[in-house]
Design a protein around this nucleic acid. Structure first.
Length: 269
DNA sequence: AGCTCATGGCGAG
DNA sequence: TCGCCCTGAGCTG
């Protein structure tokens, strides 16, 4: 589920369902029980997102810091909340809705200054108004590390995950192993602008679609294909299949414990 | 029932 | 670079 677009969408959805209300706060699974008791009945005043980090603001000073990790999931439902299963870390419930959080790597009650510390260690987020892409380029342009690894480094850019990384590099014809220092300013500007557009669209639709209109299955007369993650893509999880553009075989390789996908025909070193 | 894999990230060595 | 944490789906028997 979770790349940055998912988290920003969740910030919106939590706000839409709970902002201005004082929900019951529980932790059926138990790992968040003490904090839940402190927040129970407090007003949810605001929400925020930076990269893959989600923040729920209660009262004036309390924040719940949530990171879904690889497995975390959030499920919204109506007020008639079913009995929670024993994996629900955090449940909010008001008179109109409930929401369950399962499997997060982080769910912690923090202060405003602790929240600020999280912002401080994250790079610019294409989905945030305060993002400065030059901050990212400063690191990228000085690095011998591959652009694929840099895009996944949350200190460099916040919110890009394995799908957006693979897809944006394909869309710009850049081989994932190219060193950061070999990315030109113009290339970075184009990548950033593309990330902003793709991820905004991702927030809107709640899925990752990266295929340009002229390359959709309908436009190219090939059978529709949607990845398990729910969107249509050029290379992500398409190892050994033909590239939509050049017909060459999509390749895959491990990079820093994640699977990388690219088209050697379309992406130049 | 058990294995593998997944859109993340951390700390140890 | 590896092992580990969080969970669930989709296989394999």
């Amino acid at each position: 589920m979770p790349e940055g677009h998912t988290i920003h969408r969740l910030a919106q959805d939590y706000a839409a369902a709970f902002r201005g209300t004082s929900p019951r706060v529980t932790s059926p699974q138990g790992k968040f029980s003490d904090a839940a008791a402190l927040l129970d009945g407090a007003e949810l005043t605001r929400t925020d997102a930076h990269g893959k980090h989600l923040f729920l603001g209660f009262r004036d000073t309390d924040w719940v810091h949530i990171h879904l990790g690889l497995f975390g999931k959030v499920a919204f439902g109506p007020a008639s909340a079913p009995p929670p299963t024993d994996t629900v870390r955090l449940r909010l419930a008001n008179t109109a809705a409930h929401v369950d959080l399962r499997g997060p790597t982080t769910c912690a009650l923090i202060t405003g200054s602790e929240k600020q510390a999280v912002h401080d260690r994250l790079g610019p987020d294409p989905l945030r108004a305060d993002a400065d892409p030059r901050e990212a380029y400063r690191r990228i342009s000085r690095s011998r590390t591959s652009i694929a690894a840099l895009l996944m480094d949350q200190k460099v850019v916040a919110g890009v995950g394995n799908v957006y990384r693979a897809e944006v590099l394909f869309r710009h014809g850049i081989d994932p192993y190219r060193a950061g220092r070999d990315i030109t300013p113009a290339q970075w500007d184009a990548i950033w602008a593309d990330l902003v557009a793709l991820m905004r669209e991702g927030v809107r639709t709640n899925r990752i679609d990266t295929v340009r209109p002229e390359h959709t299955p309908e436009a190219m007369g090939r059978p529709p294909r949607v990845d398990d993650h729910g969107g249509e893509v050029y290379v992500y999880r398409r190892a050994n299949q033909p590239c939509h553009l050049c017909g060459g075989e999509i390749r895959t390789a491990g990079l820093a414990a994640r699977n990388l996908f690219w088209c050697p025909g379309c992406q130049t070193p």
